[in-house]
Each structure stands twice: as structure tokens, then as C-alpha cells.
């Protein structure tokens, strides 16, 4: 019999994310909920070639978890995938989507702006990718170690390949039953101010806020605490 959870947080991993690298952050989040990390690191996700397949795979993972309440949290590209998952589930799994209490989007470009990250190229050489990832504070050190370089860059290239083939559909804003929190870092070099209003073309009733830090502001303890407060408010 499937284990039943009261609360489940689904974290949609950013491009290049290794599940294990997320463990310290998730431990420090310290919430009273089951946590599922959605990424292609799992063995079953290895053969996925398109974002559409990725969405369907994530939907199948989500519906297989028996939970009374859910929160979706997507970071960067993970936020866009989470948004596609919501649209997909809204059509096919309306009952399940009703248990979604809140949607948290951190450092995510609006769907119409995803081409902006095309300055990343899956075929770029190692050094070029490392320079750009460092500029985004993806990881501040570690690239000097061959093993870390391989782990991170392989995953990142694979996700970039999916992204390069992805053409987001423009759909008008929809008022969902759950609130959406859109959060950006104050020093994120890729985020422009009007991105908030552009997200409003896709989801209505957004609560927007900024937290100190760059694209990966979620790694900072004080920001993690603020996100924790949002999560616990909806899981109470």
C-alpha cells in the first residue's frame, strides 16, 4: 500500500541540478513535510529527449505520490517546467491539482523570455560554460575538481539540449485556485524588472517579492528561512 503523506513539497530542479547537491539546502529548509525532488537524475528519467516528455514524466511522478496537500516550488528553468506541469495537470488531473496549496517560482524567466538564456549553448566549450555558471553564482567553487566539473557540466548540457528544443506556448493568464509567489534575487544579472508584469500574462494574482542575492539567492540561509515561512503558512 502506498504511503500517505499529509504535506508534500515538490521541488522542480533547475537546469544542471544534481539531486544530491540539493540535499544540504533541503535539510536546512527543515519543514514538516515530505520532499520530492523532481529532476532527470533518477534512472527512469535518463531517456527523456524533450520538455514535453519531461513534463509528462514529472506528472506521473506527482500523481504517484499520495499526499493530502502539495506545494510546487520551481527554481529557474524548474519554475517553467512546474508551470507546464500545472497546465498539463489542470487538464488531466483536476482533482489532484486541487490539493495544490501554493506555487512558488524563484528566479524563473517568463515563458516568453526563455530565449534569453540562449546565451548558454549546449555545445559551448567547458571554459565558456564554467565562466557563465560562475557569473550566475551557480556554484562558487569546485570546477577545479575534474569529478565535480563532469557531474555538473554533463547534467547542465543535457538540460540545455532540452531547453534549446523547447518552444513555450503563449497562453493567456489563468486564475488558479492556489496563490503563486514569484521571487527574484535583487542582484540577479539575468532578471529584468518587467519580468513580473510579463509573468502576469500567464498567471493572475501573483504575489511578487525580492530577496537579497543573485540567481541562486535560495542558497542563503535568511532567504531560505523566508521561503520556509511561505511554505509552512500553506501547510499549516
Amino acid at each position: 500500500m502506498k504511503k500517505k503523506y499529509k504535506n508534500t513539497l515538490f521541488f522542480f530542479a533547475y537546469a544542471g541540478c544534481n539531486n544530491f547537491a540539493l540535499l544540504p539546502m533541503m535539510k536546512k529548509l527543515d519543514i514538516n513535510a515530505h520532499i520530492e525532488i523532481l529532476s532527470l537524475s533518477k534512472k527512469k528519467g535518463c531517456n527523456i529527449k524533450t520538455v514535453e516528455e519531461m513534463v509528462q514524466y514529472y506528472v506521473s511522478e506527482i500523481v504517484s505520490v499520495n499526499s493530502e496537500q502539495m506545494i510546487f516550488w520551481g527554481h529557474s528553468f524548474g519554475g517553467n517546467i512546474a508551470f507546464e506541469v500545472i497546465k498539463s495537470m489542470d487538464k488531466a488531473y483536476q482533482r489532484k491539482i486541487k490539493s495544490l496549496k501554493c506555487f512558488i517560482l524563484t528566479s524563473s524567466y517568463p515563458p516568453n523570455r526563455l530565449h534569453k538564456i540562449s546565451h548558454f549553448n549546449s555545445k559551448a566549450d567547458e571554459m565558456e560554460l564554467i565562466v557563465q555558471l560562475k557569473a550566475m553564482s551557480y556554484i562558487k567553487y569546485g570546477f577545479e575538481m575534474d569529478s565535480i566539473k563532469t557531474i555538473v557540466l554533463d547534467r547542465f548540457r543535457n538540460d540545455l539540449m532540452l531547453l534549446e528544443k523547447y518552444i513555450p506556448k503563449f497562453e493567456k493568464a489563468k486564475e488558479y485556485d492556489f496563490p503563486t509567489h514569484l521571487i527574484y534575487g535583487t542582484e540577479d544579472i539575468g532578471i529584468e524588472v518587467d519580468y513580473v508584469s510579463e509573468w502576469e500574462q500567464f498567471i493572475e494574482n501573483l504575489t511578487t517579492s525580492k530577496m537579497k542575492g543573485g540567481h541562486f539567492f535560495i542558497n542563503q540561509s535568511e532567504n531560505l528561512l523566508n521561503i520556509r515561512n511561505i511554505i509552512t503558512k500553506y501547510f499549516s
Binding site: A21, L23, I139, G142, M145, N219
Partner: peptide, 12 residues
């Protein structure tokens, strides 16, 4: 105080 990079080192 293991962070995201050190945890990858640990795994490797």
C-alpha cells in the same frame, strides 16, 4: 557544514 559542492565531493 557540508554545502552543495562538498556533498558532491563526498559522493564522488
Amino acid at each position: 557544514n557540508i554545502d552543495s559542492v562538498r556533498i558532491l565531493c563526498l559522493l564522488v
